[in-house]
């Protein structure tokens, strides 16, 4: 059996659409998940019991469920909650964002904990309110400290986007799979998919390493 490049070339536009969907999901879930996760981390560190409990419950809830179940679940749940269908893309976006928020919140919490009590006191002593102190003193330092972990989480998220096949979305992995089966060219397509995933994720890891090196200085 010969390695058939042509089948990959012919399928490129289709595969590219899949890749773009993967990037799109990753970008939205990362931004949304980071924003919501930061909010949860702030709740968790606020010392106000109802907020602390809510954040704890949220994080433990989502971390106890497999992502694929959450995706599935929101596909059926969101239309029930708002009374009209939202389509698989939006339900997947919501599921990813809410799910990632749990993980980002734990990362941001570790980041906030790494900011010393002395820094917090310095901000407060200068007259900053709690919110301002978080915004201008603690969070910038927390994000810096956690930048490599945040990027690593984004890489994991990018790989996880392949799970959207359960709600009939065509991400890069799913698109590759479809072509592979349709053309009967499993080896070509799955090799190609592996190479693409490897290049993207490896580039991400290199970026993390360069970030870490820069931060040690």
């Amino acid at each position: 059996m010969r390695f058939d490049y042509q089948v990959i070339i012919d399928a490129l536009p289709f595969l590219l659409d899949g890749l773009l969907l993967s990037f799109y999901l990753t970008a939205i879930a990362m931004v949304g998940g980071l924003a919501l996760g930061t909010l949860l981390a702030l709740m968790r560190t606020s010392g106000k019991l109802p907020l602390v409990w809510f954040a704890k419950l949220y994080v433990n809830f989502f971390r106890s469920l497999p992502l694929i179940l959450v995706i599935f679940w929101f596909y059926f749940l969101v239309p029930l909650a708002i009374g009209r269908p939202v389509g698989s893309l939006y339900s997947a976006l919501i599921a990813f964002t809410l799910f990632e928020a749990a993980y980002y919140s734990e990362i941001m919490r570790a980041g906030l904990n790494s900011v010393s009590r002395g820094q917090i006191n310095a901000g407060l002593a200068l007259g900053l309110t709690w919110r301002q102190n978080m915004q201008y003193v603690a969070l910038p330092q927390a994000i810096r400290a956690m930048l490599p972990v945040l990027v690593t989480q984004a890489i994991i998220l990018f790989q996880d986007t392949s799970l959207v096949y359960v709600v009939a979305l065509r991400d890069f992995m799913t698109a590759s799979s479809i072509v592979a089966v349709r053309e009967g060219r499993l080896i070509e397509l799955y090799l190609f998919a592996a190479v693409v995933y490897f290049i993207i994720c490896f580039a991400g890891s290199m970026f993390v390493r360069s970030l870490q090196r820069r931060m040690v200085r």
Partner: peptide
Amino acid sequence: MVFQHFELF
């Protein structure tokens, strides 16, 4: 207030 460990941002 001035701190032992400076605490500059």
